[in-house]
Design a protein around this nucleic acid. Structure first.
Lengths: 228, 228
DNA sequence: TGTACATCAGTGAACGCGCGTTCACTGATGTAC
DNA sequence: TGTACATCAGTGAACGCGCGTTCACTGATGTAC
């Protein structure tokens, strides 16, 4: 990216090349180390190797840097859900589950983005129209797959809004609980990624099968069922 | 509480009476006004009408004050779930739903507690054993009603852990999305309390009925169902 | 190809601020005798 | 009932700090001619 190699003791060129992205990257690294609470704009600049005033060439304020990162996060979330759904046949229950797994999968793999998106760092989304739009678009993916499933008679319908809220809530809650360390191993250590994804699959399966107009195996409880 | 009335220009007695609780209350009020991000111990003391050093007679640090508040929150959460369940007959599906409504109801009515409990203000719960215990106890209520329902054959069983995680996730997610303002009216205004509770009831009903071993009305889709 | 000049990215010093925490203190309380 | 004294809750000044933001500046780039 930078015109001169930074290796070999060459002094860093006066112009950075892509400081905007470098600041966003530095922010993610600091968030991974110490969390939102302790994040400062000065530390971000320090981490990116520039003076702390330099960031004002790219972001109007600390909050607007975080808003840019949150926007990036919502786009990534949308892509994660889309990609997961496209790997499915055109079957509403399977697509709903896939979208849910995509949501959780994004969240547990990008907890820094999650913090900025949902951690209350941004006073009001309304000041950042592109952020509002990105968030809306991500939610719409989930809402659409639910609405479509209901219209096609594949999902039990109360009103669509209830089902949409429920679908959002379960994947959001699972993501937050795992990323926040509340849902963890019995010794308190966070679940390894593979187990997080496995839990995401089984929870979303439970939910979307419970929502299916027909029970998958007919009308008896699932094959796996057994009273212990 | 205070031995002399504070009205009538009587000067405030030197000893407060119950400064500990007054500091907790002041914290809640400031959280309601401006959120965790801007909360300072000095402002809390100012709000409670004492010098900013006084709080160190009651809390070792800012974080330990927040931990005390979080602990209080988890106890309230547990009470809200217990109370809601006790209003039900001894029927697992209804009790699960009631516990869920209790969870959401607590959260949307005490968003300041929620921030302290789940907002990342406390670096590590492990430093506060009573907090860990209160959080564990609250979760156990939800986990127990699920386990009991499965053992009695009233809830479909994958493994109990999946169902417990799913139950926790859906009520937690719904709470966070409503308290955080993400789940709101079409004009962006937060839902009024009555609608929040109504949504809590319908979402938890959808979930717990989807989980019931038998569909409530037999084996056809719910009475309300209709393709739009 | 060479030069003047507008543009703009990054610098470094400075502003003013409020923070968390510590400390030696003072005022009030209650208990032992 | 009265007094000495230990206890402890609250005070106010101080410490040291890093923060977000602004400003006049300088170095680099690229374009018009």
């Amino acid at each position: 990216m930078s015109p001169l190699s930074t290796s070999g003791r060459r002094k860093r060129p006066y112009h950075h090349g892509d400081l905007r992205q470098a600041l966003l990257d530095a922010t993610l690294e600091l968030l991974a180390d110490s969390g939102l609470r302790d994040l400062s704009l000065r530390a971000v600049a320090r981490h990116a190797g520039v003076s702390h005033a330099a960031s004002y060439r790219h972001f109007a304020s600390k909050e607007s840097l975080l808003a840019a990162l949150a926007e990036q996060g919502f786009r990534m979330l949308g892509q994660a859900m889309s990609a997961a759904m496209q790997a499915q046949a055109d079957e509403p229950v399977a697509r709903l589950q896939a979208a849910g797994v995509g949501y959780v999968s994004f969240g547990v793999q990008h907890p820094q983005h999650l913090q900025v998106m949902f951690g209350g760092a941004i006073g009001s989304f309304e000041h950042y129209p592109q952020l509002v739009e990105a968030a809306r678009a991500a939610y719409a993916l989930l809402a659409d797959v639910v609405r479509n499933g209901i219209e096609r008679g594949a999902l039990r319908a109360k009103d669509a809004q209830t089902v949409q809220a429920a679908a959002w809530a379960i994947v959001h809650g699972l993501t937050q609980l795992m990323a926040g360390g509340q849902l963890c191993q019995s010794d308190g250590a966070p679940l390894p990624l593979a187990q997080q994804l496995a839990l995401a699959r089984s929870v979303t399966a439970l939910f979307s099968e419970g929502l299916a107009a027909q029970r998958p195996t007919g009308r008896r409880p699932t094959a796996k069922t057994g009273v212990s």
